[in-house]
Write a protein that binds this DNA or RNA. Structure first.
Length: 480
RNA sequence: GGCGCUAUCGUCUAACGGUUAGGACGGAGCCCUCUCAAGGCUCAAAUACGGGUUCGAUUCCCGUUAGCGCUACCA
């Protein structure tokens, strides 16, 4: 039975790197009919926050992926301690009464790395029991095989054969002096207990995996299959972090800007994984069908954001691609809340008519506020009247164009083809180019030069609004 | 410092040891066109460096350099 898990620790908002780890786990599970497990790794009580837990759920729900089972590590402390005790009883762990390292310390920089406190590792069981009973605090450490060197090895589904000498592995802690399990112990105990078959996680854990193999071995559990993922890094090559890179690393930032969850998932998948057939835009089913560990590469991927633009241009492009692939009504419904948030009074019926006009002009859902605002306001925001002047023309021409437009537009059916025919004829009649005819009308009606196609826009806006706005433009021109 | 991992256009990436080193984003240009987009076409842009192995290395091996990760009683 294939079982995978995503195990975030609630010490910050849902990070896009974590989201990608979740996605790859999910894809692997769904692809192979396995079970997806969400395990909240909250053993670090000091750093856990409720807000962060909410952020994780919020982000995960937005992705619309879901999971089959859910656990809370803090509720499984008994299991962890039991596994620790079992290892201790086998003599593969020992109590270390050395006070916790406070930080700076002169901790042995220079020659090699610290491996263990000899006095503690060699403490007799009697002495150890006596001190423990007397209430002296201690950490429980794994007794990494010394004496003759041993090679710890495993095969990573992405990075291949991995080997490391026990001479390079320190006696890491299993339990802290407050009795709580460390990440290594809790993670392995839970993975074994939950019968996780594949551990798919960030490459930052690749070197920890040797310790994990040791733990599984000591506890008598068969180790799962491991698959490590290359990391997501900032343009400067450093690991993405909340402190250094701010909101760009938070999943909710993407949601709030108007990314489609499917587009976001698509983008994240392309970072460190490839279907190897040049496909870029892929829907959920395609991703599921194409996913495999062979497609994952081994070098870190840069999320290409900038100071002034938090989003990777490729993410933006992919989002635009997904937006264009959406059915009109679906897109309109997704646009509505963004229009509302921007203070636009948008009704669904109207939005459905506007959507076809803007869907090729927006990259983010929130762009509806800047691209389609004029469809939903009573009063056009102020604009520079110089914009009304057509190419190779002046304010006087603009005024004549608008007067004429006003006249012809009040007499015809307000529908695309008749609007086009009428305005083209008007241009001819006035002896000017069509562009010179259209632009003043466009600016008068939209309040700007760059807008969706004119005739469809006029049709959606309706005769009353158009004539009113053209009238206002004429007045502006006359006033100056 | 020790150990581990990695190295193809600016970025994401493709290439059973044999390709004019491919695609995409972004950039430039052209076309289309009522503006802006979208779309089509074109261009610039990469195998980190040095040694091997081989008839032939982006590809395999070694070294150098660089980056990243781990080296906590964080995860």
């Amino acid at each position: 039975m294939l079982r995978v898990r995503f195990a975030p620790s609630p010490t910050g908002f849902l990070h896009i790197g974590s989201a990608r780890t979740f996605i790859f786990n999910w894809l692997y599970a769904r692809r192979n009919g396995g079970t997806m497990i969400l395990r909240i790794d909250d053993t670090d009580v000091g750093r856990n926050t409720e807000a962060s837990l909410q952020s994780i759920y919020e982000g995960l729900h937005w992705l619309e992926l879901g999971w089959d089972e859910e656990y809370r590590q803090s509720e499984r402390l008994g299991l962890h301690k039991q596994v620790a005790a079992a290892i201790f009883e086998k003599g593969i762990a020992y109590r270390d009464f050395t006070p916790a390292d406070t930080g700076e310390g002169d901790r042995d920089r220079g020659e090699g790395a610290w491996l263990f406190h000899a006095e503690m590792r060699n403490l007799s069981r009697e002495e150890s029991d006596r001190r423990a009973e007397a209430g002296e605090p201690f950490a429980l450490r794994f007794r990494v095989p010394r004496g003759q060197e041993r090679i710890v090895q495993f095969t990573d589904a992405v990075y291949g054969e991995q080997a490391k000498s026990t001479a390079d592995i320190e006696d890491f802690a299993l339990l802290r002096s407050d009795g709580l399990p460390t990440y290594h112990l809790a993670s392995c105990a839970d993975d074994a207990d939950l019968r996780i078959s594949h551990v798919v996680r960030g490459q930052d854990h690749l070197s920890n995996t040797f310790k994990h193999v040791l733990i599984f071995d000591a506890a008598g559990f068969p180790p799962p299959q491991f698959a490590h993922l290359p990391l997501l890094v900032a343009p400067d090559g450093t690991k993405l972090s909340k402190r250094r890179h701010g909101p760009v690393v938070s999943v909710t930032t993407y949601r709030d800007a108007g990314f489609l969850p499917h587009a976001f998932v698509n983008f994240l998948c392309l970072l460190g994984w490839s279907p190897k057939d040049d496909r870029e835009r892929m829907d959920r089913q395609e991703l599921m069908d194409a996913f495999s560990f062979e497609g994952i590469n081994r070098s870190n991927a840069v999320v290409n954001f900038k100071e002034d633009d938090p989003f990777d241009p490729k993410a933006l492009w992919l989002n635009a691609e997904h937006i264009r692939a959406l059915a009109i009504e679906d897109l309109a419904d997704r646009l509505l809340p963004f229009a509302e948030a921007a203070g636009l009074r948008a009704r669904r019926e109207k939005m459905i008519r506007v959507t076809p006009l803007i869907r090729e002009r927006i990259k983010l859902l929130r762009d509806v506020a800047t691209v389609a605002d004029f469809f939903f306001v009573d009063e056009l925001p102020p604009y520079d009247q110089a914009e009304l002047a057509p190419d190779k023309g002046d304010a006087a021409l603009a005024e004549r164009v608008l007067q004429h437009a006003c006249k012809v537009l009040s007499e015809i059916p307000f529908e695309h083809d008749s609007l086009e025919g009428t305005l083209r004829a008007a241009a001819k009649e006035m002896g000017i180019k069509t562009g010179q005819m259209f632009q003043p009308v466009r600016v008068a009606v939209c309040g700007r030069k760059n807008a969706p196609p004119l005739f469809a826009t006029l049709e959606v806006l309706g005769r009353e609004t158009c004539l009113k706005r053209i009238g206002e433009a004429i007045r502006k021109l006359a006033d100056s």
